[in-house]
Computed example of a mutant assay.
Amino acid sequence: MFARFTDAARETVAHAARLAAGARPPAPRLTTGHLLLALAETRDETVPASLALDPAALRRRLGAGPGDRDLLATLGIDLDEVRRRAGASASLWRMTRSPFRPLRVEVAGPGVLVPLAGGARKVIEVAQHHARRRGALVEQSDLLRGLLADARDESLTHLRAEGVNPARLWRHLNDPHAA
């Protein structure tokens, strides 16, 4: 499933899986909250600047605690450099759908296997739909569209609490020249 994702979008989903697996206690599923936090921490140029999230505040709101990057930085260790040297790039990650349980989607990487919660699976499906309509690979902006697609989702609650207007963000995603 990751074959149709850009490197940045693949890294976002892999980062969300690491967040879910690294939670204390480990999260049983990758949620939309994990995807939102991963998007805030790995944001690229396809995501509008109007998504101004403070990753540290979002971590506190989600109860995620300090990130690996912050903890290792206190010891003088650069997590990006460690991952680069270890070869732990997003290319080592896979997202698969179970042939026996078609609604079960899992993200697997070095030492991590996390199933997607229903809302996170919907985010991925909406992102893939938008990318197919454009005839392009799934980008981070498509993942954001997926997060915004369900008005009842927990991620919208977190966005609103951070002062982001989801309707304005949706308009900006669909027409970057809109005010």
Rank of each mutant, 00 (worst) to 15 (best):
L53K: 00
G67E: 10
V112I: 15
L75C: 04
P110L: 12
N174T: 11
H172K: 14
R134H: 07
R104S: 14
A40Y: 12
G22R: 06
G76V: 03
L103W: 13
L62E: 11
F5C: 05
A8Q: 02
T12D: 13
L36I: 13
L159W: 03
G67S: 15
A120E: 04
A57H: 09
G33V: 05
R83E: 15
V126G: 00
G76Y: 05
A56S: 14
L113H: 14
G22F: 11
H130T: 10
D150G: 05
W170V: 01
H177D: 03
G111W: 15
T31L: 03
R101Y: 11
G109T: 00
R61Y: 10
L173H: 02
V123W: 10
A73E: 06
I77K: 01
E139R: 01
D142G: 02
R4E: 11
R104P: 09
R134Q: 06
P26M: 01
G33I: 04
L19A: 06
G111K: 15
A88L: 14
R152I: 07
E162D: 03
D150E: 12
A23G: 04
G22D: 07
H177Q: 12
D70Q: 11
L148G: 05
V82F: 11
T32R: 02
A120L: 08
L156E: 11
A38S: 14
L92T: 06
V82T: 07
R160F: 11
P110R: 07
H34T: 01
A127E: 04
W170A: 00
R94V: 04
G146C: 05
I77S: 00
R83M: 13
A167M: 09
A151C: 08
V47Q: 13
L19W: 08
R69W: 13
D54H: 03
L79Q: 02
F5L: 08
A167D: 13
A49Y: 10
L116H: 03
A21L: 12
V126F: 13
L58K: 02
G111S: 15
R97A: 05
A108C: 01
L148Q: 03
L156S: 08
D153W: 08
M95A: 15
P176L: 06
F5H: 02
P48V: 06
A27K: 02
H177G: 01
E139V: 00
T157W: 12
A73L: 10
A151V: 14
Q128A: 12
R168P: 08
S98C: 14
G33T: 01
G111C: 13
D175V: 09
P176T: 02
L58R: 02
R61S: 14
A73Q: 05
A49E: 15
D80F: 09
A167G: 06
A178V: 14
A120V: 07
E154D: 09
L143D: 03
A117V: 09
E154P: 11
R24W: 08
L39D: 05
A178I: 12
P166L: 09
D175A: 10
H15T: 13
R134L: 12
Q128N: 07
L103A: 15
P48Q: 01
D44A: 04
G146I: 03
P176E: 01
A88Y: 12
A86N: 06
